[in-house]
Computed example of a mutant assay.
Amino acid sequence: MTIEPRSDTPTLVEDLLLLLFQPASGTIAGENTLFYVLGGAVLADLALGGHLSTTDRGRVSSVADHPPTDDLLRSAWNYLAEKPRGVQTALAAIGPPLRGPVLERLIARGDIDQEPRRVLGLFRTTALRDGRTERRARLLADVRRVLVDGAEPQARVAALAALLSASGTLPQFHREIPWTSPVISRAKEFEQGDWGADAAGAAVTRTVTATVVNNAVAAITVLPRG
């Protein structure tokens, strides 16, 4: 089922997939772990919006009577409203269907363009290329500031940096984000939930979001990269 784009602020999962898109090759980095990474972004977005809570043993559940307005996030919220779930279970259920609908949103927004091509001069296909909005460049600059320049992150940028690092794709961003020892250490801090005091407004929201991302990271990093 196609999920229509919204006119308001893009979701965190849209931002993450846009960052993982590689304009030079027209491919998505980290395809082997993509559904876990995108699922982690949805859970983090729910946590940042106050729609998610954690229970004993790191399980997550929806906050009753507080659904998100975005249809894509609402689907995940409905699933978690049934009963508390382990983060890995939630990722396995939420993540796999996300790539197509999220990519459709990015194309509809103009962040990514589709270009018709022919293979061997016979078969029609489409290729992906950088869009007209320059939003990917702005997102990448935000992540660079916190990883390279040591800037204090906003919560969304901290979550993006953590999930990007967990995906194993950061070395592919070497031109924009040098793959150096300080950057690696800083990225690992984000993976572990060390975002700084200003990364989220309320302490409860910060704790829930860090728990979600930390568990998602743990699930992602044990997957094979091949």
Rank of each mutant, 00 (worst) to 15 (best):
V143A: 05
I107G: 03
R145G: 10
L147V: 09
E152C: 05
T125C: 14
R138P: 01
L164R: 02
R135V: 01
E176Y: 08
P182V: 09
P97W: 03
S165Q: 08
D111Y: 01
A127V: 11
G110D: 09
S185A: 15
R105N: 08
P153G: 07
I112M: 02
F173M: 11
T125Y: 10
L122S: 07
E191H: 05
F173Q: 09
R109Q: 06
Q114T: 15
A108C: 06
R145K: 15
A108L: 02
E152T: 13
A141I: 06
I107S: 02
L120T: 12
D149P: 07
Q172L: 15
W179S: 14
D113Y: 05
Q192N: 14
A159T: 05
S185L: 13
P178Q: 11
E104S: 13
I184F: 05
V146Y: 11
E152K: 10
A162F: 04
T126R: 12
L103A: 08
A158W: 03
S167K: 10
L140T: 04
D149A: 12
D111E: 08
G131C: 05
R156D: 06
R138I: 07
R144F: 12
Q114S: 13
A187L: 08
R129L: 15
R138D: 13
Q172C: 12
L139V: 08
D130C: 11
L163E: 08
E152Q: 12
R186S: 14
S185P: 04
D111V: 03
A137E: 14
F123W: 12
A127C: 01
Q192K: 15
A166T: 03
P101C: 00
R186K: 14
R99S: 07
R136C: 03
A162Q: 03
V148Y: 07
